[in-house]
């Protein structure tokens, strides 16, 4: 039997369900095996890895979420930076961050190596939470509360860039997260304010 020599523009004659050449079989087997590795990595990372987008997810009324954020600010506010409250919640607590055109409310002050549940939601349209310079990204959708268990592993003065188009002021929508190494002292918050850029 002579193997086929027709092109993809010609109709195959007779039955085309024929055994493949060894080279093709080997490649398909390798590709299939690789696909299984790709698939297995995701559940494995849920078990062994430290970064998963699971979170606590529920529907929420946008105004109710904003009210909850206001209460959260009132409870733990320690200062402000150009009018934006700086809030220092205790380790292990629920932290609320509301996105709205064109700001992130409030500024968060967290402690290194302590876990928090960071609740993200929007008061108006879709926004994108992008933590600079770490490049951690989450979608912020109005009507949904995304509660992510986060544990900052390094101290620093971070920014939140909005990376989902939210209107004409999208590119000025920048927020701030401060992570302190160790428990905050009274003076630390002040220092952090000064370090927050002099624009």
């Amino acid at each position: 039997m002579t193997p086929e020599t027709h092109t993809g523009l010609q109709s195959p004659r007779g039955v085309w369900w024929k055994p493949a050449h060894k080279a093709e079989k080997v490649w398909v087997a390798i590709a299939f095996g690789w696909c299984m590795v790709l698939f297995a990595m995701m559940p494995l990372w849920h078990l062994k890895g430290g970064q998963n987008p699971s979170g606590i997810r529920r529907k929420v009324d946008p105004e109710a979420f904003f009210q909850r954020t206001q209460e959260f600010i009132a409870q733990y506010q320690i200062g402000d930076d150009r009018g934006m409250p700086i809030v220092a919640p205790p380790a292990g607590s629920d932290v609320y961050l509301t996105a709205m055109a064109f700001q992130w409310t409030p500024i968060l002050q967290l402690e290194k190596d302590k876990e928090y549940v960071l609740h993200l939601s929007s008061r108006d349209v879709n926004h994108g939470f992008s933590l600079y310079p770490l490049n951690i990204n989450f979608q912020v959708v109005p009507g949904y509360d995304y509660g992510l268990r986060v544990k900052p592993t390094e101290a620093g003065d971070f920014r939140i860039i909005c990376n989902e188009f939210c209107g004409i002021g999208h590119h000025i929508m920048v927020g701030r997260v401060i992570v302190l190494d160790g428990a905050p002292q009274a003076a630390t918050a002040e220092t952090a304010v000064v370090a927050g850029g002099d624009r």
Binding site: D81, R82, M84, Q103, G128, S130, Y132, P133, L134, N135, N137, R159, I161, C162, N163, E164, F165, H170, H171, I172, M173, V174, G175, R176, G196, G197, D198, R199
Partner: peptide
């Protein structure tokens, strides 16, 4: 990979309240 956002007019953030320096 540096975290530069897509769909963004100004990554120098010249009018933003807090500075961002890629």
């Amino acid at each position: 990979s540096f975290g530069v956002p897509r769909r963004h007019w100004d990554i120098s953030f010249s009018n933003a309240p807090f500075d961002v320096q890629f």
